[in-house]
Simulated assay, not measured.
Amino acid sequence: MRKLLNTLYVTSEDAWLSLDGGNVAVSCSETGKRMVPLHILEGIVSFSYRGASPSLMGECVKRGIQLSFFSPRGRYLASASGTVDGNVFLRRQQYRYADDEKSSLRFAQNFIYGKIYNARYFLLKFGRSYAMRVNQKVFNDAADAMKKMLKEAQDAKSVEELMGIEGTAASIYFSLFDQMVLQQKNDFSFLSRTRRPPMDRVNALLSFSYTLLANDCASALQGNGLDPYVGFLHADRSGRRSLALDLMEELRSVYADRFVLTLINNRMVAPADFDLQESGAVLLNEEGRRRFLQEWQKKKTEIITHPFIKEKMPWGLVPHIQALLLARCIRGDIEEYPPFFWK
């Protein structure tokens, strides 16, 4: 259990939330009973499967506190709200910004700036950490090229121009991805990024990790009252959670890509975890998915310090904090959306 930006995050799977006077009481087997005053909270996010008492839900509705429920694995379930959902004003403002080219570009630039920054930093850090095993100069040269693209992203005059800059940066980044595969090279070689379907084992791992990350981002956006289907960078498309794809851009390299490389380089996956389809597609099989999901959940529990709010938290809460910051920016509580900059 932790309180961040006036939002209480309950991460214990067996926690039961109830009302105790003017407090939310969080009871679980590990820590016993702890109480937090309701008057200091703007939201409560619970990842417990046990839920909350009706009296607490009623009091949260009365006080205008957003009470959101997620499965322990991070799937959005529901939120408690009154007969009139106050988030309608937040979503209406989101739609106004999405329909305005200048406003959309402003948000899109922050997403892409964060993506290029993190990918560049990842290359620099990898090159330094494995200087005896990779060509560090090649990594540094790529980082120098991407540094120029940070300025270009800031100066982009349209979302289309911004997407072109992002595409060039991604091409440079993925041109070095095979060099970051340090173990099992014969079984996990990477030539280029292939999607729908992935055509090799590395792409199968990347695609699955991106799917999970997109789900986490969509759940986080819903929990903060935003519509995950209406984005600023990715165009509207029926059934596509465009805002979730926007939000995950800055987290791809430092969250999903690093995780995939850890699985391969630490020999946590093997060729037996994949099936080859008649079409040539390569997909994780049932055992591979099980192992992947186990490690993905462990990854979420790793503690980091959030670079913007300077608070320690598990990785799994990062999408929720970024969604919360995005909602605050859309409401006008903060001037600019702060991307997640990995340190």
Rank of each mutant, 00 (worst) to 15 (best):
N266G: 13
L56I: 06
Y117M: 04
L41R: 01
R196I: 00
E161R: 03
S175D: 10
V230N: 03
I303K: 08
L243R: 09
G21D: 05
A256V: 08
N87V: 13
A156I: 04
V10Q: 02
I116Y: 08
F107V: 08
R195Y: 03
L182F: 00
K102M: 07
G332V: 07
L226E: 03
R63H: 09
Y9W: 04
I309A: 07
S171N: 13
A145P: 01
M146C: 09
R267L: 13
D187N: 09
L8A: 03
G127L: 00
F308I: 15
F341P: 00
T262Q: 15
K3M: 14
A142M: 01
R2M: 11
L41P: 00
L182G: 02
Q277L: 15
V134M: 07
E13V: 05
L56Q: 02
F208M: 07
A156R: 03
S253P: 10
L245I: 12
G58V: 10
H306Y: 01
F107I: 06
A143I: 00
A323M: 05
Y95R: 09
D333M: 02
L247P: 02
G332A: 02
E30H: 11
P54W: 09
E101L: 09
Y9F: 15
A218K: 04
T31I: 13
L325T: 06
C60R: 01
L5K: 06
A131G: 12
L226G: 01
G127T: 04
D236F: 14
A52Y: 09
Y117D: 03
F190I: 08
R201H: 00
H234F: 07
T11A: 10
Q94L: 12
T194A: 03
G32P: 01
I65L: 09
E30T: 06
F232D: 02
M248I: 04
D178P: 00
T7N: 06
T7R: 06
T301S: 14
S242L: 05
E152W: 13
Q277I: 12
A25I: 01
V181H: 08
H320A: 12
M132I: 14
M163H: 14
D246P: 00
K343G: 15
S103Q: 15
G231Y: 05
F126K: 00
E160Y: 12
F126D: 04
R258D: 07
N6Y: 14
V159A: 03
A145C: 11
T83F: 11
R289D: 13
N186S: 10
V84E: 11
R289V: 14
L317A: 10
G32K: 07
S158L: 02
R289K: 15
L251F: 05
L326M: 12
Y97M: 10
